[in-house]
Simulated assay, not measured.
Amino acid sequence: MNTESLVSRRAALCGIAVALAVPSGLVTACSSTPTSTESGTTPTQGGSTPTGSAGTSGTALVALADVPEGGGAVVDAPGGKKIVVARISATEVKAYDATCPHQGSMVAEPSGGTITCPSHGSQFGASDGAVKKGPATTGLRAVSVKVDGDQVVLT
């Protein structure tokens, strides 16, 4: 009986220590779910999903002339996000969230059909965002874009 009360007391003290060590704001800040203070009309993902976010469709990201064929550019998107735009051919572009899925670093501009993360060397295919070389285990998240005149725009 005495052993049971010691175990329970230890469990309770450990729980209190964890609760005091992790402020609730830290847990909320790590969440990818928008908080209730964010407006429903403000894009929270900056078009980083394949279908884009409400209010971002048609937003120009970069002039097509500024995205070299076989290469690309890392550009600012609505909501403070970064997007990597890869120019596959004279008229075809692909875009991805520029955040490396390995540890959240920003990837570099595409070169030679490859997008590289400078932090740990992960490589992704510019044409599909798939992992070519780890340590990343998942590919880049696609962002829906199109060429509209002389601009690359979110769709």
Rank of each mutant, 00 (worst) to 15 (best):
M1I: 10
N2F: 13
N2R: 15
E4I: 15
E4T: 14
S5Q: 14
S5I: 12
L6G: 09
V7Q: 12
V7M: 14
R10T: 14
A12G: 13
G15F: 07
I16K: 13
V18M: 12
V18D: 06
A19K: 07
S31W: 10
T35N: 11
S36V: 14
E38A: 07
G40F: 00
T42H: 06
P43I: 03
T44Q: 11
T44W: 09
G47P: 01
G47V: 04
T51L: 11
G52K: 00
G52A: 08
S53R: 00
T56V: 15
S57R: 03
T59L: 04
A60D: 06
L61V: 05
V62N: 02
L64P: 11
L64T: 11
L64S: 12
A65D: 14
G71S: 15
G72Q: 07
A77E: 01
G79M: 04
G80T: 09
R87G: 02
S89G: 07
S89L: 03
A90M: 07
A90L: 06
D97V: 03
C100E: 04
C100R: 05
P101F: 12
G104T: 12
S105G: 13
M106C: 11
V107Y: 00
A108R: 06
S111M: 05
G113K: 01
T114R: 13
I115Q: 03
C117P: 06
G121I: 12
Q123D: 07
Q123A: 14
A126H: 05
V131Y: 07
G134S: 06
P135M: 10
G139W: 02
G139Y: 03
L140E: 03
R141F: 01
K146Y: 09
D148Y: 03
G149K: 07
V152F: 04
V153L: 02
L154A: 04
